[in-house]
């Protein structure tokens, strides 16, 4: 897998939004194809399933769904590729992967009790931190 990635070069800019879109899908597929290898090298079998990692990758892509400028998309793709390279080459350590893609942004403690559902915004913010 890493051999394939090494041969990749920075492609020229996308001419249109359509081209950028296909490239994004290409990139996402590449991520998905590397997931089994990543699971293997970082020893993630007991903390996460491949489908969870796939949805984590998809969420990363979807975060930028609103962007329509092909140049910006190219830049984000480049950054995404860089991140993927780092992961596949094992430039990262296990806790990086666990922290960024397994636990996610919500943190380890996710105590969302049933009572909180009708709580006001103020109370939700109050529980999370003193600053909002």
């Amino acid at each position: 897998m890493s051999q394939i990635l090494k041969r990749l070069k920075v492609p020229p800019n996308s001419a249109s939004l359509e081209e950028a879109r296909t490239r994004t899908f290409e990139f996402f597929r590449m991520c998905c194809r590397s997931i089994p290898h990543v699971m293997e090298i970082y020893n993630l079998h007991d903390v996460v399933t491949p489908s969870q990692l796939r949805s984590a990758a998809a969420a990363e892509v979807r975060k930028n769904a609103n962007i329509t400028n092909p140049k910006v998309i190219d830049m984000l793709l480049f950054k995404g590729m860089e991140e993927l390279m780092n992961i596949v080459n094992q430039s990262k350590q296990r806790h990086h992967i666990v922290g960024q893609y397994v636990v996610g942004n919500q943190g380890l403690v996710q105590d969302v009790s049933a009572k909180d559902r009708d709580a006001s915004n103020f109370l939700k913010k109050f529980y999370s931190s003193n600053y909002s």
Binding site: A119, S120, N121, F122, L123, F126, Y127, N130
Partner: peptide, 23 residues
């Protein structure tokens, strides 16, 4: 995990079901 004084009172009021009208 400390909070500002007025925020604590405001949060307590909501938990107690007598929410104060300022946040």
């Amino acid at each position: 995990d400390a909070r500002d004084d007025w925020k604590i009172v405001r949060a307590l009021s909501e938990v107690a079901g007598v929410a104060l009208p300022y946040d």
